[in-house]
């Protein structure tokens, strides 16, 4: 009669399987959270639609995000910039969302937009370099021009940055200190 290792392990089989199921559950949960539960599309203080501005009215991105090709920051338009158009064009003076904008302007208060794309503080990222390199805004931000509310289509992680740098053979693009600060 031989002694089977499997037999000896039999009492441990069920706890092992239970643990395996638990771990699989963990991954599933984290994935579900990342995909469906995290706020990739936060509700903004004003229900601003890029579709109306960019697709319907054909305003180019950098008309409002004026710093994108000259500074590290693309720049969210100033309140004066928004009200500038909305005051001078008669057919966009009314409407509940535009009145909200007017209220911010009246009180000289900035609009507290919620960040959709957030790069951690230890990362040096510059819009200027990427635009000068010929990237389209959509390559990172997705088709914002068709979004009524901006949704983040990518997960901003180091691997995502490095993959692109590798693929495009960016000069020193894989040196840590190109992006870390």
């Amino acid at each position: 009669m031989s002694i089977s290792v499997l037999d000896a392990l039999r009492p441990a089989k069920k706890p092992a399987l239970l643990t395996l199921v638990l771990v699989i559950g963990l991954f599933v949960g984290a994935w579900v959270h990342g995909k469906y539960l995290s706020d990739r599309s936060p509700v903004q203080p004003i229900d601003f639609s890029h579709t109306i501005h960019t697709t319907d009215n054909e305003i180019p991105c950098q008309h409002c995000h004026i710093y994108a090709d000259t500074t590290p920051v693309a720049g969210v338009p100033s309140v004066s910039k928004c009200i500038g158009c909305h005051k001078s064009l008669p057919d966009v003076r009314e409407g509940p969302e535009i009145l909200k904008l007017a209220a911010y302007w009246e009180n000289r208060e900035p609009i507290p937009w919620i960040k959709v794309h957030d790069v951690p503080d230890f990362v040096h990222f510059t819009h200027k370099r990427h635009i000068k390199a010929g990237l389209e805004c959509q390559e990172c931000h997705g088709s914002v021009e068709t979004m009524d509310r901006v949704t983040r289509v990518v997960t901003i992680r180091m691997s995502w940055c490095v993959d692109c740098h590798t693929e495009k053979e960016v000069e020193n693009g894989r040196d840590c200190w190109t992006c870390h600060k």
Binding site: G29, H33, V76, E109, P110
Partner: peptide
């Protein structure tokens, strides 16, 4: 496990940051 995964995801999520424009 799934609930734990969701909670983990929640805990590592960065705080909401605001994008404040100039007036």
């Amino acid at each position: 496990g799934a609930v734990g995964g969701v909670l983990y995801g929640e805990s590592v999520q960065r705080n909401v940051e605001l994008l404040i424009p100039q007036v």
